[in-house]
Design a protein around this nucleic acid. Structure first.
Length: 301
DNA sequence: AGGATAGCCTGCGGGC
DNA sequence: TGCCCGCAGGCTATCC
């Protein structure tokens, strides 16, 4: 499932090939995934992409005509670039399923065939006839069309500091502030995008483990030192996952067909009942903040 | 008011 | 073997 590292991975692989390119056309195959105006113009047709930005799990395409597209991948969303200059192995993907059928050369992209659940297809100007696909089987994700960069800033003002890019001190301060007098658990605060943007279920559990904080811990009882350890842990676990090309479920395969390296390094996520990598005790599993949660009763106090 | 919950949606794996 | 059910979970609307 895409979390911040997967989105950043996609953004980085798309950026050098999409920025500077003009959008030639768009095909909307399922309009309900779009919020806001759905006209070609609103979908950046005729505009040159000048920037690919990211805040938390959201990615934004900024056009030179002032238009902005916000792409959110939700649980199962993918942005697949088939652009000039992108090698066979360079296409971004956040596949939770085998990517074999979504791979294809740029030449193949001329054919109007799409992987299942492809909702939007952008074509780009140029001799290569490149295109970018948005697909999302479960449709928890979507695309928002905004009128201006100001509207994007307004939208992103509702998000907390970015878990990867913001200074660790800012993350810690945001956590302390969000937990002050709050009845909710440390994990619930970590999952709140308005507190820290980009932490999902996987990295919330991993960060709690690294910081030695029990996910069930009431936020109000968190010591400042613990909030600081959580902030450092969030940053380090996200940075490591980005470095490894993102992680996902056990069957995660990136666009090169390689299994995500980071998936093998989850210390707690998906390992309920298995021995703790640090102390060997049986990892506990329960529902915390409405999410499956795994932690070590020995290492996380 | 703030925190908990339901619902959205499809693929897949376990169990019968 | 095949089918069915439950689970996976980010986010919003609604409930308490």
């Amino acid at each position: 499932m895409p979390e911040l590292p997967e989105v950043e991975h996609v953004r980085r692989s798309l950026e050098p090939h999409l920025v500077g390119r003009r959008v030639a056309g768009v095909l909307v195959r399922r309009a309900c995934v779009i919020e806001g105006p759905r006209t070609p113009r609103a979908l950046l047709v005729g505009q040159r992409v000048v920037r690919l930005a990211r805040r938390g799990k959201q990615m934004a395409w900024v056009g030179d005509g002032g238009g902005v597209l916000v792409v959110h991948l939700g649980m199962t969303g993918q942005v697949l670039g088939e652009l000039e200059g992108m090698g066979e192995g360079a296409k971004p993907g956040t596949a939770a399923e085998a990517p074999a059928r979504v791979r294809g050369s740029v030449a193949q992209s001329v054919a109007k065939t799409y992987p299942p659940h492809t909702h939007i297809v952008w074509t780009t100007e140029g001799t290569g006839g490149g295109r970018v696909l948005f697909r999302d089987p479960r449709r928890f994700g979507g695309v928002w069309t905004l009128k201006s960069v100001a509207a994007l800033e307004e939208r992103w003002a509702g998000l907390g500091p970015d878990g990867l890019d913001a200074p660790v001190g800012e993350l810690a301060a945001a956590l302390v502030e969000a937990c002050r007098g709050s009845a909710r658990s440390a994990k619930a605060a970590l999952l709140d995008q308005a507190v820290i943007a980009g932490v999902g279920n996987i990295y919330a559990d991993e960060a709690c483990f690294i910081a030695g904080v029990r996910p069930t811990r009431r936020g109000a009882r968190l010591k400042v030192a613990e909030a600081e350890r959580l902030a450092v842990a969030v940053r380090s676990v996200l940075a490591a996952a980005v470095e490894a090309g993102g992680s996902s479920l056990r069957d995660y395969v990136d666009a090169d067909g390689r299994a995500g390296e980071f998936a093998q390094r989850h210390a707690v996520y998906g390992r309920g009942g298995e021995p703790c990598v640090r102390c060997g005790k049986r990892l506990k599993q329960a529902t915390v903040a409405q999410r499956t949660t795994v932690w070590c009763g020995g290492c996380q106090g």
